[in-house]
């Protein structure tokens, strides 16, 4: 319980930092409303998501109502309103991937990570999304983990993908601990 509270507070703080950064960036951008979608894309590109608080700021920047910006942002698949995980997982559900069992792959991630599509794990390690085709149909089913495309994915490979990330995290942690120990002893 206490953990959750601390995590939530941390997220609030982070969102505040993101909003401050956006407020600092906006004045340098053209106020031509043709730039609305590019600006939303830019914010998401830099910060990984569009905090709801940023919608009003963008609206004020262009001098248009918040409802309009919200309407545009919620129309397109690209925009998300919660922060992505450190390892965003995108399961392709294009035609070829679907025929080859993409849905089953998505289900396996859902089960393994305990989150539904569009959600981020509480520890912000993973987020899960479905995408409508990454254009690697001949390698179906395909999953994009971070920047890397995993091809011919099977349920057991799902396990492998997560395990690999977990192992790498553990190695990183150990090395960090080692470094700290070393710097402590020095």
């Amino acid at each position: 319980m206490v953990d959750n509270l601390e995590q939530d507070q941390e997220i609030d703080l982070e969102e505040e930092r993101v909003l401050d950064a956006i407020a600092a960036e906006l004045p340098g951008i053209s106020r031509d409303v043709h730039q609305l979608i590019p600006v939303l894309q830019k914010i998401q590109h830099i910060h990984g998501y569009l905090p709801l608080g940023s919608i009003g700021m963008v609206a004020a920047h262009f001098g248009i109502p918040g409802a309009k910006v919200f309407g545009v942002a919620t129309f397109y698949n690209q925009f998300r309103f919660n922060p992505p995980g450190r390892h965003p997982i995108k399961v392709c559900l294009g035609t070829a991937c679907h025929v080859k069992g993409g849905e089953i792959i998505l289900e396996n991630f859902t089960r393994r990570l305990g989150i539904e599509e569009g959600e981020t794990t509480k520890d912000r390690e993973y987020s899960l999304e479905r995408v409508a085709c990454v254009g690697c149909c001949a390698l179906a089913p395909v999953v994009v983990v971070g920047e890397k495309i995993e091809s011919y994915v099977t349920p057991s490979k799902v396990e492998g993908v997560i395990t690999e990330i977990e192992i790498q995290n553990e190695i990183a942690e150990r090395e960090k601990a080692k470094d700290e120990q070393q710097s402590d002893s020095e």
Binding site: L93, T95, C133
Partner: peptide, 10 residues
């Protein structure tokens, strides 16, 4: 190119 199974434009 929005068709979830075509990628020639790309």
């Amino acid at each position: 190119e929005g068709d979830p199974g075509a990628y020639m434009d790309r």
